[in-house]
Design a protein around this nucleic acid. Sequence first.
DNA 1: AGCCGAGTCAACTTCTGTGTTGATTTTGCT
DNA 2: AGCAAAATCAACACAGAAGTTGACTCGGCT
Lengths: 219, 219
Amino acid sequence: MTTSGIGRRRAQARREGNPTYLEKRRQMVQAAAVLFKEKGFEATTLADIGEAVGVDRASIYYYVESKKELLLEAVTGVSSLNLDLAKSLAGQQHLATAERIRMFILSTLRTYDENYPQVYVYIQENMAKVAPDDEPWAKEMARQVVEFESLIDELIREAIEDGTFRPGLDPRLTAKALWGMLNWTHRWHRPDGSTTVEQIAENFSEIFLAGVLAEPQES
Amino acid sequence: MTTSGIGRRRAQARREGNPTYLEKRRQMVQAAAVLFKEKGFEATTLADIGEAVGVDRASIYYYVESKKELLLEAVTGVSSLNLDLAKSLAGQQHLATAERIRMFILSTLRTYDENYPQVYVYIQENMAKVAPDDEPWAKEMARQVVEFESLIDELIREAIEDGTFRPGLDPRLTAKALWGMLNWTHRWHRPDGSTTVEQIAENFSEIFLAGVLAEPQES
DNA sequence: AGCCGAGTCAACTTCTGTGTTGATTTTGCT
DNA sequence: AGCAAAATCAACACAGAAGTTGACTCGGCT
């Protein structure tokens, strides 16, 4: 909304797209993401972010328009990552369902790991809370989440219908169970920790698949 | 810290313990809990709470000392609920492990349901984030969480060692998987919804137990 | 040396939310 | 009705954080 001053200069810098400018901007978004993950969005101040990246709080506005933009920038693309995953999975009709689930678990966790801490910020901050619903990007995100969840539901529903999974399972609850296992990792998993995503994926797949398959499978 | 004014009157009212006073106070804590659950602690203002309960923001201070007290009041006892559950379970050595797990899942979800939304506030707000660690209640809570988690770990470890569960499972990850399924309910479960906790518990038990037991069990 | 422009920052303004005060209203009791 | 205690609220003080401004620095270029 500003017609002069920092807003103008920011707009110009962004237009030019100077690499060092973009790099510094990226750094800020990254630092912000780390702090958002640690302290939460509301509790993180621009002063914190400035300090983390070693510039005055005011300089941040040369790179971004607002605190919210930092959050958006950090989580943008995150939900589409998930969605793309699910979509590509839905395409692999030739694979056995069990194999598809296994792949889904592994690649989801890989995505979480590789996009740390942004993904976890996304999970942690209920994005619906931050945005007043009506903003376009908020709608888009909500849409993606819905689409994503229905893809997973669908996958599980199919598995039950075609006899791969035991009958009697509630597809929705089964999806929630899996989703809970995966998303709860945001509370304890650190990429630099001693447990690798591959180990986690292996264990979770073991448990979940043995838990839902029609006939028992030995590891 | 205030030596006169509202603080004094609050202290006195609390000392007397008039039932209507306590009731109104309880209402405020409840309303606050609902809002904390919906919007998050930081994002909720005292004005919101006042409005929800139909009094001026300032009146709240006749009942509580601070916003934080509302949070504490809401979640106090929550972690000990969990802990008691786990402890009583640890005592039931005569029950088969599978049965104990099933009971654990059901009673945990019942606890969550009956203490809605407080429990979910507790889960959602990483309590460690809200408190600066050094406050005594924060320490106590942290201690309880640690104790609780180690009890569950222990239960699962035993089950693997005594052959009830499949070998090869990582006890820690198995516990996290279960914990994730249960705690993630905070994102989608509402006590007044169409799904009952009994249904959820039944499905989750099915999945988890079939997933970990040494020999397959048919429902 | 002097200029130019990208980037920085001290010093605001503005806003929002917490907590306080003392007067005022409401309630319950005689 | 009249009074005292209980409860409420308008108004204010204060703090902290977002966002803005315009002057300044500093490296590269002529």
